[in-house]
Amino acid sequence: MSTIVECRGVAKRYRQGALSVDALRGLDLQIEEGDFASLAGPSGSGKTTLLNILGGLDRPSAGSVKIAGEDITKLDNNALADLRLKRIGFVFQAYNLIPVLSAVENVEFILQLLGAPPKERRARATEMLEEVALAGLDNRRPAQLSGGQQQRVAVARALASRPAIVLADEPTANLDSKTAEDLISLMSRLNESSGVTFLMATHDQRVIERTRRHIVITDGRIASDERRTRPAS
């Protein structure tokens, strides 16, 4: 198993006028290929900051972050955009689909940015929608889909480029219990069948119980990192 994410001494300091806030304080973390991990912690503990840094959306104030062996702290903005496109999949709490594109177009969009030929990207997008059990809903726009369906499209989009890791920020927070359960099952199944690496920042106990690795972050540091051989089913 290879290392997908490797953080060493990652710190992030925000300045708010004369004040400075340390969101991360010398954090070390390693995510292995195939991990299905949850990241929990109280509000303000640094979960989202860590996800942003791992996803190349933000830069650390200190320390190094390697994604699939590449130190992303040295990349410029365009290279970070390419990294996000090719190596990272994002799933957001609020789904964040492009409202004017249909489900299949939302998935296809990533592939177009990657320069895939039209036929190939349409086939891949359709395949991804089938994978997340949305076959037949290809041409519906986000507003015509339920919250759970939108989040499935978001998962399909995140996986379309075959990323090294999918980072999910509170993916079930906007979903009802049943839909949230279905989504967790879907992500778990994709992790097991395709070996996709997931790291999910969450407060949702159901997500935490279903992951095989549970990381707790407090005050910008890793407070615990527990691996479970048999998560709750």
């Binding site: 996803g55 959306l57 903005n77 365009n78 955009a81 996000r84 496109l85 409202p99 940015l113 480029s161």
Partner: peptide
Amino acid sequence: REFGMLMAIGMRPNQ
């Protein structure tokens, strides 16, 4: 906010 999301999924600001 949507532009932020587009950047997050890999779209370059100039795109």
